[in-house]
Structure formats: structure tokens, C-alpha cells
Write a protein that binds this DNA or RNA. Structure first.
Lengths: 224, 224
DNA sequence: CTTCATTTGTATCAAATGTTACAAAACTGC
DNA sequence: GCAGTTTTGTAACATTTGATACAAATGAAG
């Protein structure tokens, strides 16, 4: 029923041999469920009391707004787990409705059984802790980034972070277009801000190559 | 050395009897360390490979900016744990420097030992998972809120959330001043946005009482 | 009711950014 | 080198919001 060769590729079960997975799953209760295209796997608001791992096919997560319209949030495919971030915590309800994109087969492990796996197997425990911790760290980073109001602040933060303690020339690894999207601003606005910082002798812009001229004043931008 | 009556109040060890805590701590390696006022417990950037629980006193978390100036981030006191969010995950380094505010005594549990505790004791495991999951959910919420660009969007989101499926009149539980701060905008800007939405027949504002007139168009604000 | 403090509504101006458009520069494949 | 595409620089204008100020409305205390 379960396919260890796929499960073992899932972030939560990574690093576990197929044999070990087979053995572990013999000792917990779980279900393998199949869905056809457009079937609903999970309704938004439903209690998240089980871990769902996609074994075959792909699903999409949709969010329903207050007027009832649905918006697609993301696609997930085998071997990824669903909503690892909502198995625990205060508000452990699915924030999204999950719909099958095609023929889908999933493994459903009740929360209590999954806790057993976490306690039995250090690798699974570490994998799971790493997964949600990494997510929290990612969100935290993103939040910090958004806390900077002006574009110049975002640029300053980004450049100082990229530069670290090393040399003062930062090579942009992306186009300004992509950077602008990361910053959540328009491309001309980003170019304008870069241009102004250039004039203010904060940085020296030469296409993708940016030299930091004044770390001190860059910081003042961020704090004072 | 450890004080079970304090540790048992810590979020991670909540729900465990003092006797059980004493027993558990006999089976893991840990240290109790003391610090004087202004001593540094942890330097930013240091590997976060241990759980630190404050047993007595209080500490402050400071962040050092790129020019070397330090900014206070938050205060933490007994019986709270330090940096639970950074024990696991990809980037498990302390993001802040931790400094003692006064005479401080902490319990330090190496990561590997803490993993043992998680595997031995379901309550600790659940507490810890709940702690970091709740944090991730909180961050996720906050991020969603910040993703709304205009003040009107923030108002629409807030009102629709408050209203839920129930009646269409929302009583503001705070002053506009406080609401404005929550939204990260100035008070006059909030009042202006409310006034405009009033004119546009989206809502009917009467001081702290706001009636939602058109849910459909409120949603259009959020999405399209 | 009167007086004072708080809260709310409104106006004006400046700053920052979005929107749109276009040209210059750099890159790509030939 | 050349033609076409992508990327970048720049401009003009509209929109949104911040900053500041002040008046009107409300609420609280006497």
C-alpha cells in the first residue's frame, strides 16, 4: 500500500532507508487514500489532526475569500507533506482547501501516531523540527525585511547583508526586475532609489555591480 | 541546582510535575550557569546548539547593526526559554546577543540531550512543537497582514475578519490611535481612509461602530 | 451645566512610490 | 559586426501616505 521508495524522498522521512520505513509503518496506524481529479482532500477550517503525505499525483491549495471566491495559493506534488506547519500550535486548522489536480494517492497518519514516529526515530524528529523551524526562520526573515518602510532601507539592508564583513562590492545575482519583486516594489522605483543613493555617494552603481561607499550612513538609514 | 518549581512553569516544561522534572534531569547532561549584570550569555552569530532556560533574573536580547551599534530587541525573564526558534532549522545561529540585566541563573541543555527529552516525554515534545508551530502561525498571520499594501485593504481585511459570518456591524475594541499603530500607519491616514470608504458606501462609520455595507466590494479591494 | 482632556474628523503640504512610457545599454545568436 | 531581445536608466504624472495642525465631538469629573 505505501511506497517506501517515495515516502523516503519526503522531507520528513528523508535519510531513512526504505526497509526502515516499511518497518516503522507496520507499527503505526495509517491510511492510504485515493482521490480523483477535483476531489477535495481537505476543507479550509477543518481540524488539522493528521499528517498527509502525497504519494502520487499533485494537489493545489486554495483559499476562499470572504465572498466565496477561491484563489489558488500553491501546487504540491509527491512526495511532499501537507500543512506540516499546522499539525501543532494553537490554531491547528487548515488555512486552505486542498483539491486534487489529478489522480492522487496520499498517506494519512493521525497526529497521535505521527508523534509516536517522532519519539521512536531521531531522524524523523530532527527532520520535522528542522522543517518547521526553517519555515519559522524564513518567515521571520521575510517579516524583518518587510518592516523596512522605504526602498532605500530595503536596499541598504540587502546590500549590507550580502556584503557581510567582506569586501564592499556586491554583485547582484539577479536582475533588477527580480530584486524589485523580492522587495515588493516596482522596477522603476528600485532603479530610481539606486540612482539616488548613487548620487548621495552612499553606493556606486554599475549595472549589477554595486560598491558600498559609506557603511555608516547606510546604517543610519536603517535605524535613525 | 535546578529548581523544578520554576522550570515547570516554563512553556516547554509546562504540565510536567516537579518530581518528574527532577527525575528527567537526572538522566540528561546539563549545566546551571550564573551570570552577573551586563555579562554576555550569548553572542550573535554563535551556533545555537543548546536550549537555555532562564531560572532566575532577566536578560535582554540585543541586535548589533552593521556599524556596531546595539539595539535592544526584547526582555526575557524566568522561566522563559531562549531562542527556541533557532535550536533547529537551517540557519541555527543566534540572531541576537543576549546580555544579563541583573544576577541571572540559567539551565543549559545541549541540543542532543534536549532531543532525548523530546523523545522520552510526550508532554515536552508536544509543548515544544506547539511553541514553535504557534510562533510560525503567528508570523504567517502577521506576514499576511503586512502583505496588504494600502490602508483600505488593511481595514477591509480587519473588518471582514472581525465580522466573520455574523452580523455586519463591527465595534472597534480600541481607539483609532491604537488601531492605526497596529496597522503601522498614522492616525490621520487611518481616519481619512475610513472616511473615504464611508463616502464610497463600502462602510458606514459612526465613531467606534462600523457597519459593513458591501462585502463583495470589500473583497475586491483585497484581491483584484 | 461647565470645564477639561481625550478622541475623532478634516485640511494642507511634502515625501515616497506606483504607473506608464521610452530610450540607452548590454547581451545573444547568428 | 548585426539584428533582435533583454535589461537598465530616466522621465512625467497620479496616487498614497506621512507630518502637522487645528477644530469638532465626545466623555469624564466636578
Amino acid at each position: 500500500m505505501i511506497r517506501p521508495e517515495i515516502i523516503s524522498q519526503s522531507p520528513v522521512f528523508m535519510g531513512i532507508t526504505e526497509a526502515e520505513i516499511t518497518r516503522l509503518f507496520q507499527q503505526v496506524h495509517y491510511q492510504v487514500k485515493s482521490y480523483g481529479k477535483s476531489d477535495i482532500l481537505v476543507n479550509a477550517g477543518e481540524l488539522c489532526d493528521r499528517l498527509i503525505v502525497i504519494q502520487e499525483g499533485s494537489v493545489k491549495a486554495e483559499m476562499t475569500d470572504y465572498s466565496g471566491k477561491t484563489i489558488k495559493i500553491e501546487d504540491l506534488e509527491a512526495p511532499f507533506p501537507l500543512a506540516t506547519a499546522f499539525l501543532f500550535g494553537k490554531n491547528n486548522r487548515f488555512p486552505v482547501t486542498v483539491v486534487a489536480n489529478n489522480e492522487v494517492r496520499v498517506v494519512v497518519i493521525p497526529k497521535a501516531e505521527f508523534v509516536k514516529l517522532l519519539q521512536w526515530n531521531t531522524v524523523i524528529l530532527n527532520n520535522y523540527l528542522n522543517t518547521i523551524s526553517t519555515r519559522a526562520q524564513f518567515l521571520s526573515q521575510k517579516l524583518k525585511f518587510l518592516s523596512f518602510k522605504t526602498i532605500k532601507q530595503k536596499i541598504a539592508h540587502y546590500l549590507l547583508e550580502q556584503a557581510g564583513d567582506r569586501l564592499a562590492v556586491v554583485e547582484l545575482p539577479q536582475t533588477q526586475e527580480q530584486l524589485a519583486e523580492m522587495f515588493g516594489v516596482t522596477r522603476p522605483a528600485l532603479a530610481r532609489a539606486l540612482g539616488e543613493m548613487n548620487q548621495e555617494q552612499l553606493i556606486e552603481v554599475q549595472r549589477k555591480s554595486i560598491r558600498i561607499l559609506n557603511k555608516e550612513r547606510m546604517n543610519q538609514l536603517l535605524n535613525g
